[in-house]
């Protein structure tokens, strides 16, 4: 591969500029500008104090500086950006914080998968949190079902008229009822 993906590890801090070809995944900290022709992924907990330029920027960490993507800038949940965003496509997820100007400009190329993806520290928790609101809506749907049952009960008791309450076990009740009727007749 001519331009292999680079990784700035979690325990690494760079004071200076990062430039070049290829994609880069930042899990540590950079105090300086990042400029590559490939994609940039900034992981949760990672940070950049400087401007970031790349093709597709996927941000889940903190940035103090401007973001410029030739293809897209995507801010994920947990991202904190103080600076301007410029790209043909810009996505800001719920839970991402931005303070700065946002400008979608340039011709948007067809969407594609990023070459580097953001590493999430707690994928399980994130999925649970996301699942919770989705699971909530079915509850109101379940409620209307209960009155129907109640209505059915009422109609059933109405058919039975002023007779004794329905026995808990229907089979036994039927048998008893028959016996009683038989004795009476």
């Amino acid at each position: 591969m001519a331009s292999a993906a680079s990784v700035i590890g979690e325990g690494t801090t760079i004071r200076g500029n990062v430039r070049g070809r290829g994609s880069i995944e930042i899990r540590g900290h950079v105090e300086g500008d990042v400029e590559v022709d490939g994609d940039v992924a900034l992981a949760e907990g990672a940070g950049v104090d400087g401007n970031v330029r790349g093709a597709q920027l996927v941000i889940a960490g903190q940035i103090s500086g401007d973001l410029q993507g030739t293809e897209a800038v995507l801010l994920e949940r947990g991202a904190r950006v103080v600076g301007d965003l410029v790209a043909p496509r810009i996505g800001i997820a719920e839970g991402a914080l931005v303070r700065g100007h946002v400008k979608t400009e340039g011709e948007a190329p067809a969407p594609r998968r990023a070459q580097v993806t953001v590493a999430r520290r707690t994928p399980e928790r994130a999925s649970v949190e996301r699942a919770a609101p989705a699971a909530a809506p079915p509850e109101p749907k379940a409620e209307p079902a209960a009155p129907k049952e109640a209505v059915a009960d009422k109609s059933a008791s109405a058919k039975r008229g002023a007779g004794p309450p329905a026995p808990v076990v229907p089979a036994l009740g039927k048998a008893r009822g028959k016996k009683k009727r038989a004795k009476r007749s």
């Binding site: 591969m1 001519a2 331009s3 292999a4 993906a5 680079s6 590890g9 979690e10 325990g11 690494t12 801090t13 760079i14 004071r15 200076g16 500029n17 990062v18 430039r19 070049g20 070809r21 290829g22 994609s23 880069i24 540590g28 300086g32 590559v36």
Partner: peptide
């Protein structure tokens, strides 16, 4: 990665 240039001070634990 190949093609990438870093100018500055790099510190790490890995």
């Amino acid at each position: 990665g190949e093609g990438l240039t870093i100018e500055g001070e790099i510190t790490g634990e890995e």
